[in-house]
């Protein structure tokens, strides 16, 4: 049984696609489309599936709240949250390291939980609240974890640092910073090629023991 517009579902599934599909077909000839399209599209065209071509070109509406600011965006489904943050919202604090979920440089919080933004598609987190490294400080006042990283020299080149700090904040919030061993285990998703690990652990321990709200 299909229900057309259930309350939890944004209406784009039906309405948005319909209107923009019309626009697309109006503004572009099929041959031009085929000449500039990747192979799945050509395949679709060969099977005479004009509608499918149109669909493949669609951008999907996405609404996000990033660091307290609401954004209405229109993105290709293949755009990752990482690229969306860096390229479209110009929030370049979040870093692209391996781009395959192995290094943690891209760590951000989605609805308060730390994730790898490089493996998160933007369309999937539509409607959610994102916090990046730019969202931790309150004006000129650094977040306690940022202060602690500076105090303990928790970095050398600094490239992994935004991810380390986002992960470190989550590590304390989750209740996984109760010992050096636990901190190391729960920070294992963040690689530091400079090897600043001992100082990172010290910074996290200080914030944890200081009992400040993170």
């Amino acid at each position: 049984m299909k229900s057309k517009n259930p309350p939890e579902e944004p209406a784009h599934e039906d309405n948005f696609l319909e209107s923009s599909r019309r626009d697309f077909l109006k503004h572009s000839g099929l041959l031009t489309a085929i000449a500039f399209t990747p192979s799945p599209l050509v395949k679709a065209a060969q099977s005479g599936l004009d509608e499918k071509i149109a669909d493949l070109y669609e951008k999907v509406p996405v609404s996000l709240e990033v660091n307290g600011v609401k954004h209405q965006l229109s993105i290709e489904p293949r755009v990752t949250l990482l690229d969306l943050l860096r390229e479209q919202l110009e929030l370049t604090g979040t870093k692209k390291g391996c781009d395959h979920g192995q290094c943690g440089a891209c760590t951000v919080h989605v609805d308060g939980h730390r994730v790898n933004s490089c493996l998160t598609l933007g369309v999937i987190v539509s409607g959610k609240k994102i916090t990046t490294i730019e969202g931790l400080a309150k004006g000129d006042q650094l977040h306690p974890m940022q202060e602690a990283f500076i105090k303990h020299d928790g970095f050398q080149c600094g490239y992994c640092t935004p991810g380390q700090i986002m992960s470190a904040v989550a590590c304390i919030r989750e209740g996984h910073a109760n010992s050096e061993h636990e901190i190391r285990e729960y920070m294992s998703g963040n690689i530091c090629r400079c090897g600043a690990y001992p100082n990172i652990v010290n910074a996290i321990q200080e914030v944890k023991e200081g009992g400040q709200a993170v």
């Binding site: 049984m1 299909k2 229900s3 057309k4 517009n5 259930p6 939890e8 579902e9 944004p10 599934e13 990747p38 192979s39 799945p40 599209l41 499918k52 669909d55 493949l56 070109y57 669609e58 999907v60 290709e76 489904p77 293949r78 598609l121 369309v123």
Partner: peptide, 12 residues
């Protein structure tokens, strides 16, 4: 590669 994205409303 590009792909279509869809979020069907129900399990069915």
């Amino acid at each position: 590669k590009q792909f279509q994205y869809s979020r069907p409303a129900t399990q069915q």
